[in-house]
């Protein structure tokens, strides 16, 4: 079995607990992400999801363990890993266009100004920003619009891995739905590998190929890897009618409600903590997976 595109190996993070000891957030976490895969990580606050995200982004250093992408070890931030932060992280003194331009120019320092403008405008219109709205400052845009700009900035750079840190966490439910649809639409046209954090179970099922479930901290671990056996393209109204939707949803709710607590606080004893693979599929067993389901080689 070859190594997955992104490989997280024996990753541990410990922080001083303020009393002279050390608090283990997670220990020996090990999992992989395949090229083109959309992986969502679900878990309660404080389980270390964001820490894993920051390590993948190269913004934080793990206490031990390595993350490799495309065969090379991640040792710092890189344009190959685009990040969309929960709080948008747009530069408030630049317009929406200026913010996307900032990213494109960093990626392609040799491009002419006209070319940078053209590409930036193209990606902004792709996320639904009008020609008038792109000249506004972030403070003059709604939360949903800001997050669209942030997504456009990330996609315009064609990162090898796109990291989404609770991108819709600060948005109201209706806006969230629209942007999820838009994200699906943009993502569908690319072969973009995505790793995303969320708290929202329905959002996870709608977007993900695979959901990683994390137990509570301390000593949190990625306990399960749940394959979403609902064919694409998906829409929020259609997936709820799919026979697999509620069994998967129930499984996730049960995990977050009960088992995430029961499994918490267990030291790994040095062993690699790989998630158990879970596949729930009520549609015509033992039919082979439909062709448009992405193959997952683990």
């Amino acid at each position: 079995m070859s190594k997955p595109f992104v490989s997280v190996e024996l990753l541990s993070q410990r922080f001083p607990d303020g009393k002279g000891g050390r608090m283990t957030v997670f220990e020996n976490a090990s999992f992989g992400i395949e090229k083109g895969e959309f992986v969502v990580i679900l878990g309660h606050s404080g389980c270390g999801k964001s820490t894993i995200m920051n390590i993948l982004a190269g913004l934080a250093q793990p206490t031990s363990g390595v993350v490799t992408m495309d065969g090379t070890e991640i040792s710092g931030p890189s344009l190959d890993r685009g990040v969309v932060f929960q709080n948008y992280s747009l530069l408030p003194w630049l317009t929406a266009l200026g913010n996307v331009r900032f990213g494109v120019r960093a990626r392609h320092p040799d491009w002419s100004r006209a070319k940078v403008d053209e590409v930036s405008t193209e990606y902004l219109s792709m996320v639904g920003l009008s020609a008038e709205a792109i000249h506004r400052k972030p403070s003059q845009l709604s939360g949903g619009m800001r997050q669209r700009v942030s997504i456009a900035r990330a996609f315009a750079n064609h990162p090898k891995l796109l990291l989404l840190d609770e991108p819709f966490g600060a948005l109201d439910a209706l806006t969230r739905g629209t942007i999820q649809d838009e994200l699906l639409k943009i993502w569908g046209g690319t072969n973009q590998t995505v790793f995303m954090i969320t708290h929202d179970i329905d959002e996870a099922i709608l977007l993900a190929d695979r959901i990683l479930l994390m137990t509570n901290g301390p000593f949190a671990r990625v306990a399960e890897s749940v394959q979403i056996t609902i064919p694409r393209p998906r829409t929020r109204t259609d997936i709820v009618d799919h026979p697999n939707y509620y069994p998967i949803r129930n499984h996730l709710v049960q995990f977050l409600g009960k088992r995430s607590k029961e499994l918490a606080g267990q030291a790994s004893g040095g062993a690699a903590q790989s998630p158990d693979r879970v596949r729930i599929d009520l549609t015509a067993p033992p039919a082979p997976a439909p062709a448009h389901l992405r193959a997952i080689a683990e």
Binding site: G76, S78, L91, A106
Partner: peptide
């Protein structure tokens, strides 16, 4: 966050200073 934006865009320290920290 803004400094992290500069870091994830691989800006050098001088460009970070001029294009992010100064404004």
């Amino acid at each position: 966050d803004w400094v992290n934006v500069a870091r994830t865009h691989e800006l050098g320290s001088l460009r970070t200073a001029l294009t992010v920290i100064l404004p």
